[in-house]
Design a binder for these strands. Sequence first.
RNA 1: GUGAGCGUAGCUCAAUUGGUAGAGCCCCGGAUUGUGAUUCCGGUUGUCGCGGGUUCGAUUCCCGUCGCUCACCCCA
Length: 419
Amino acid sequence: MKNIQAIRGMNDILPDTSKYWAMVEGILKQIVLQYGYQEIRLPLIESTKLFSRTIGEATDIVEKEMYTFLDRNGDSLTLRPEGTASCIRAGIEHGLFYNQVRRLFYYGPMFRHERPQKGRYRQFHQFGVEAYGLAGPDIDAEIMLLARSFWQELKIDNKVELQINTLGNADARAKYRERLVEYFKGHYEFLDEDSKRRLLSNPLRILDSKNPGLQDLIKNAPKIFECLDSEARRHFDGLCDILDKVNIPYVVNPRLVRGLDYYCLTVFEWVTTDIGAQNAVCAGGHYDGLVAEMGGKATPAIGFALGLERLLSLAVDSLRLPSSDVVYFVLLGDQAKASGMLLADKIRQNSKVSVIVNCGGGDLSTQLKRANKSEANIALILGEAELVKGEVLLKYLRENKPQENVKLEDVGNFLNSNN
RNA sequence: GUGAGCGUAGCUCAAUUGGUAGAGCCCCGGAUUGUGAUUCCGGUUGUCGCGGGUUCGAUUCCCGUCGCUCACCCCA
């Protein structure tokens, strides 16, 4: 029988890699907490309607990428393809947004049934940040400052670029959509198959096309700025003004549109050229209409999601794992074996170090080999001779220092002060 | 969903114009019966992805299939 393998596009994160995940998650979490954002933990499964309504019926996510199945009672359920819909659902359900400002964050796995490639998997992980009840543009800038803190702390500030654009309000977006359709219909014969399809489903996305043959056509297309009302224009100018003053470099990219239906006003992407074709590390925008659309009171909202797989592949080179204090407990003889586990627990209680106790026997040489292969930087040797003296023999595995004898009752303190 | 490249040991890879496979790392034992990492010696690695075809004979050639990777589409 063939061995069972992981589902396509679903990855195991093995110990060598999980260390980096834990470190990055810790850094991100610490930063958002410092900005006053609170964690919200959301279910992985929601009612299918939640996503089809909010993300947009005509988007690829809803049309063909959702993991949808019937519950035993016949309800249609879906593994979440993104976090914002759930976040708003939870916020309305528990009254979090009612006349209040909320700064929230979440992280965890998302699911989209796409063909996997570098930086894109069927189960992938997002870290999302969302702010409710603030119209901006100051909150827009805050969120970008926050993201910039991520890159600085992860030492990848020089690898990412911020691109911003505005989509205007719903009216402007509708008007712009019409003008774009008109324009591209006038040049229909030059469009490729994908763009002809997009003309019907989501004309804004034609602007995003990677086809080199289309670039001239796109360059000459009408600009969203021609359709903006004065309020949207003020919002965007206000954002640019703050970004300039807080020294966040950015590029205005009028062709930047987002795939999901719910975005309006400010949209932005942090992009990179370092991780393959999937170049968006972090992206988001305003979704001021969503809360009301889902039955809540009209509430301005802005947020972004960042792809942790993409972030990891970008940051892993510059990350230095914190050195860990680990000792390996070598036990020789039946007496030592009997008391070793107990002693190890005493050390764990009296110090902050991790203690790996040798299991499976072996002579001194064998056990030291294991110690050397482990992450331990110190071996503690306890044999008949040491037991009699009430000591352990402490041997440094990674530094050129002489080994020394330490009284059993002093081991915890010794390890503490040594590190 | 579409296209291209690749599937040989736990890992990284080699080889055979078609004659049933090899190296490094890893692992185990010994030199070293209480001293690891270095060095030396020895040992185990395998339905050559799966199925079929051609052939006296297929890991090699052909067809199919599955898997992986990258790219398109789409998105974080």
